[in-house]
Design a protein around this nucleic acid. Structure first.
Length: 612
RNA sequence: CGGGGCGUAGCGUAGCUUGGUAGCGCGUCUGGUUUGGGACCAGAAGGUCGGAGGUUCAAAUCCUCUCGCCCCGACCA
């Protein structure tokens, strides 16, 4: 490709709309252009990189026996109603056809693939089955960001596996895990595998492949010492003394002064309490009121902690969880901000007599984070406006049934690693891929069953696996750039090299660069010849911005048949004879590719699947 | 959906407080001089100031509404 013909409009100034490094560089280097919020056109360079990424993805998936399909973007509503996701998923792009029939633009393809397999696969002999596609997905994101990192239309590889048994799924799961490691390694990524949350897609096990980056939107807790890492929502919190019984606690802590009711007018929040009582946040017991599937639940935890609503949801086994609105509190509404575990049942009953929601409050459902067991000399709400109790001991002044204790709080930086005990650290990550164990949550409603050897119908066990292809494009730049521009890893670079014809008025330079260009093309290299009629500085700047891994300068040494070969990453260059340039370039490319070869050392040790 | 910010030439922006002929840089086009890290000189084209309504003799500027975009949060298969 001649640079003079290349459609890659570069921008010298930093576009105002972009914040993250990759987004800015993609705009500046002419890789993408925005059409609307979260919707982008890929220009030729972007397409070339997407193709290279996709090729690696295909090779590695085919290697583990997966087969490529291509499913529709347009899905009928009925299919999604069968799994309940027409109503449940709120990022759906919905539309109607001319006959007013409802459709949606596929945000993911569990329904479509499961329905396909349900129709076409009947026997245990046909399993396991691994199918994938690389397809454009649509999600009406509430907030697209970072250019193509989180967009509303994006390219994704999604793969689905179908199995007879959980054990069989597990085998495939780890095969995919390894294929993913190879894909990221070959594409030039250094990634971190973490335990993932399963979100609305359901399922109980998942791993996320994360690029640690400031621009990431996943909050992870990473162990600096071992391989452990997890989505922050997923990290379990363990307390050393959780096992201690209530009785023991009360004996041990009987030196706390008797409980006392104190007046605390208008002091409702923990920060306010800290200020007015001159205590630290962990001296308080805060009690939050939730509505879980319509029923009130009181949740106690230490004043400095936050509820992990996913843990709470799972513990309560409810579908819908939200903070209770004052109206739902009935008689206790006036005590909002002054709720506490002491005498909660008595007070709730008394106050709710005239209220229709009485039945909910008669036996208030009180649950608590494990840490509450250790609370002594604490302060909590008195279930009465403007009053708190102080000198409150768990076990002496109130107690909660053992089965109502659980790990309910958000883990924070500094909490011990569940594997090795080292203090965990917060990191941001860009999720490049995720693998899920889906179980039968899609095969059951869509009746995707196989006939077993004894002719019994059994729902298939499913796995699903995604890789954000367009997100990888952005993330590559996020991980590989400097102040001058992009630095593509050779394996995914849009071109292997750029040949800079420094002065296109110079006959000798022109002759040599044309010769090298032809020779490079003939030998199968992908190169750009910068034949533009601009000053050398402009060509150099553009070369650095666009991130070609290698550059051949045909300039002042041309008279003696010398050219300069420069490595974008290291900035090092050396002079060589023009007739050796292509040979040398190939050598450098091969060497660079070798550093991206996956080897067994790079795969992390397999971990057991932990059922949630 | 909450909070904050921004819409002025292709891009980056000044002007808005205090209403009065819309300015600069980059880019583009023409001519010339230059030619190894985003050159210089001369000239030119390019604007319904996001849109609608209002106040006013007069609105980019003040007021109301609306649309779009960005950032933080909520959300996130």
């Amino acid at each position: 490709m001649r640079f003079s013909q290349l459609f890659s409009p570069t921008i010298k100034e930093i576009p105002a709309e972009a914040e993250t490094p990759s987004h800015r560089l993609m705009l500046r280097a002419g890789i993408i252009r925005k059409l609307a919020s979260g919707i982008y056109t890929y220009l030729p360079l972007g397409v070339k990189v997407l193709e290279k990424i996709s090729a690696i993805v295909r090779e590695e998936l085919n290697r583990i026996g997966s087969q490529e399909v291509l499913m529709p973007v347009l899905h009928p509503k009925e299919l999604w109603q069968q799994t309940g996701r027409w109503e449940k998923v709120d990022v759906l792009f919905r539309l109607k056809d001319r006959a007013e029939r409802d459709f949606l633009l596929g945000p993911t393809h569990e329904e479509v693939i499961t329905s396909l397999v349900a129709h076409e696969v009947k026997s245990y002999r046909q399993l396991p089955l691994l199918l994938y596609q690389i397809q454009t997905k649509f999600r009406d994101e509430p907030r697209p960001r970072g250019g193509v990192i989180r967009s509303r239309e994006f390219i994704m590889m999604d793969m689905y596996s179908f199995h007879k048994t959980k054990e069989d799924l597990e085998k495939t799961y780890w095969k995919v895990y390894e294929a993913y490691q190879r894909i990221y390694k070959r594409s030039g990524f250094t990634i971190r595998v973490v335990e993932g949350e399963t979100g609305d897609i359901g399922g109980d096990v998942s791993h996320q492949f994360e690029l640690i980056s400031q621009s990431g939107e996943d909050t992870l807790l990473i162990c600096p010492n071992c391989s452990y890492g997890a989505d922050m929502w997923r990290v379990p919190c363990k307390n050393s003394k959780v096992k201690a019984s209530a009785a023991e606690n009360s004996l041990k802590w009987n030196n706390t002064p008797p409980m006392e009711k104190i007046e605390t007018p208008h002091v409702k929040t923990i920060p306010d309490l800290v200020k007015s009582l001159k205590k630290s946040p962990q001296d308080f017991i805060k009690t939050l009121v939730y509505e879980a599937d319509g029923k009130l639940v009181f949740v106690c935890l230490r004043g400095d902690r936050d509820v992990n609503e996913l843990k709470l949801k799972r513990f309560l086994r409810v579908k819908k969880l939200e903070m209770a609105k004052p109206a739902a509190l009935g008689g206790l509404a006036s005590a909002m901000g002054f709720v506490g575990p002491v005498n909660l049942g008595v007070v709730a009953k008394r106050k709710s007599v005239s209220d229709s929601r009485e039945e909910h409050l008669e036996t208030p459902h009180l649950v608590a984070d494990d840490e509450i067991r250790e609370m002594k000399d604490a302060v909590c709400g008195a279930n009465e406006p403007d009053y708190h109790f102080c000198h409150v001991d768990y076990g002496r002044d109130f107690s909660i049934k053992d089965e109502n204790f659980a790990d309910l709080r958000m883990a924070v930086s500094g909490d011990p690693c569940p594997q090795c005990g080292t203090a965990l650290k917060f990191e941001n990550g860009i999720e490049l891929g995720q693998i899920f164990n889906l179980g039968t949550i899609y095969s059951k409603p869509l009746n995707c069953v196989y006939l077993d050897e004894d002719s019994s119908e059994i729902p298939m066990i499913m796995g699903c696996y995604g890789i954000g292809v367009s997100r990888m494009l952005a993330s590559l730049i996020e991980q590989h750039h400097d102040s001058d521009g992009i630095i593509w890893p050779v394996s995914v670079a849009p071109y292997d090299a750029v040949i800079v014809l420094v002065n296109n008025q110079d006959e000798k330079q022109t002759e040599i660069s044309e010769k090298i260009y032809q020779e490079a093309l003939d030998s199968g290299l992908e190169v750009v010849l910068d034949d533009r009629d601009v000053r050398a500085g402009v060509k150099f700047k553009d070369a650095d911005l666009l991130g070609f891994p290698f550059r051949i300068n045909v300039g002042r040494g041309a008279g003696e048949g010398k050219v300069e070969l420069r490595d974008r990453k290291t900035g090092k260059s050396h002079e060589i004879n023009a007739d050796k340039a292509v040979e040398e370039l190939k050598k450098m490319k091969t060497e660079a590719l070798q550093t991206l070869e996956p080897n067994t050392r790079d795969s992390e040790p397999r971990r057991e699947i932990v059922s949630a």
